[in-house]
Amino acid sequence: MQTVKMVISGAVNAGKTEFIKAISEIEVVSTERRATDDTKLIKKETTVAMDFGRIQIADDLVLHLFGTPGQKRFDFMWEILSEGMLGLVILVDSTRPETFRETNRIIDFFVSYRDTPYVIAANKQDRPNAWSPDELRLALRQPPHIKVMPCVASDRESVKNVLLELLYVILQRSED
């Protein structure tokens, strides 16, 4: 059985959990609790949020989806997670410009030192105050060849489109 991995990253509350839930064939293993959960407050120094989903491609091939923790103090885990990944989806909460700087930091981390195939998913496009993908591209200072896709992470079709775009980027780089 061959296993391949994609990583879904983004700032806190960008929609990583929803994104993976929308497409995973298993109940997503989510270690993150709702922000209202008091235990989070009690243990916030020692616990970390992440998500894990899975898609069976064929009998001999499985795709794993890993959501990274959004909190800055867990940057060191991104390194571990990114090992051997096929590609990366960067999720952005299009309604919260205050997270764009953090999103840029995440993109820099994953992309600066390696040639990682990635796309940006402009999430929460169903909200009235969402920045459009074009606006986001500018805000994030992304070059034209980087795909910035409109996305609603709770909508499976939308998530499929984002993953397919990423796969097309990966396909261009793969060998015959």
């Binding site: 397919l164 796969l167 396909l171």
Partner: peptide
């Protein structure tokens, strides 16, 4: 391999 994943998705 990538095409297999694309087709599945």
């Amino acid at each position: 391999l990538v095409n297999r994943i694309i087709n599945r998705i």
